[in-house]
């Protein structure tokens, strides 16, 4: 049997006594391309932060490559949900992406030639190389999101977490980004939080519905049946409902 990349066992998590995640069990194997869907406040971002080790588990276990998240954090690429943090900060796109190559306690040692090549590749993959000297506040929302994806790729991760990576991106850009992810997925495991269920459906391999509890649905692609299964999740159908209606309209034609 293949060894899992991520193993979550009986995980419970509460914020200020408000229960966010309940009895979560999830096992993810290498080269998975998993979509996390569910309502706002359903615990998607919390679940990701627990897997990243940014939040501490209170009850239960989260293992990445069989180890505690903190020990393997350098193998993880992360695109945060809110790319508007610190928009006024004086930093160029290039410097943001270089953060992906940061090795702590290096002191006066500068980034190596190899680091710069990796950063250039990441920026080029996302079509952001020409904007490398722009200040981050001069970018549009979509461009900023690409810069953050480039930063996650610069890590050269084995697992990639993306929290709503296409929220500000136009349709063409969404397709580009997901094609890129699909390509990357040949060698790495990807977890993506997204509300754009329909855009996702042709790229992902499995879906996890997150609403306090987590329901895992393995499937090669999202079929009608799969959608039906998704609706059976104990989820207020915000995320599910809209694509559902879109789908029905198309079917009626």
């Amino acid at each position: 049997m293949r060894t899992p990349v991520i193993e979550i066992k009986d995980l419970w998590f509460a914020f200020n006594k408000h229960l966010v995640l309940k009895a979560v069990n999830l096992t993810i194997y290498p080269n998975e391309f998993l979509a996390l869907i569910g309502p706002n406040g359903g615990g998607k971002t919390t679940l990701i932060k627990l897997m990243l080790g940014l939040l501490k588990t209170e009850h239960g276990k989260v293992l990445i490559f069989g180890q505690k998240p903190k020990q393997v954090a350098h193998l993880i690429g992360y695109v945060p949900q809110d790319v508007r943090i610190n928009t006024n900060f004086p930093i160029s796109v290039h410097d943001v992406v270089l953060m992906g190559r940061l090795h702590p306690r290096q002191g006066w040692v500068r980034y190596s030639r190899k680091d710069h090549i990796i950063v250039q590749n990441a920026l080029e993959k996302l079509g952001m190389w020409q904007y490398r000297n722009e200040r981050i506040k001069q970018l549009s929302g979509g461009q900023r999101q690409r810069a953050f994806i480039a930063r996650a790729l610069a890590v050269e991760p084995e697992i990639l977490f993306l929290d709503e990576p296409i929220a500000n991106v136009d349709t063409k850009g969404q397709t580009e980004i997901f094609s890129l992810l699909k390509d990357l997925n040949k060698s790495i495991t990807i977890l993506v939080v997204s509300h754009d269920f329909m855009v996702l459906s042709s790229y992902i391999k499995a879906v996890a519905c997150v609403n306090q509890r987590v329901h895992f649905h393995a499937a090669a692609e999202i079929t009608d049946e799969m959608l039906e299964m998704a609706y059976h999740c104990p989820v207020e159908l915000i995320a599910h409902g809209i694509p559902h209606r879109v789908l029905r309209k198309h079917e009626e034609h």
Binding site: L52, Y78, P80, I85, D95, M99
Partner: peptide, 14 residues
């Protein structure tokens, strides 16, 4: 720089 701009990402980088 990393801490000031994005403390979460900085933490991930160790």
């Amino acid at each position: 720089l990393a801490l000031s701009y994005d403390a979460e990402f900085a933490q991930l980088r160790g």
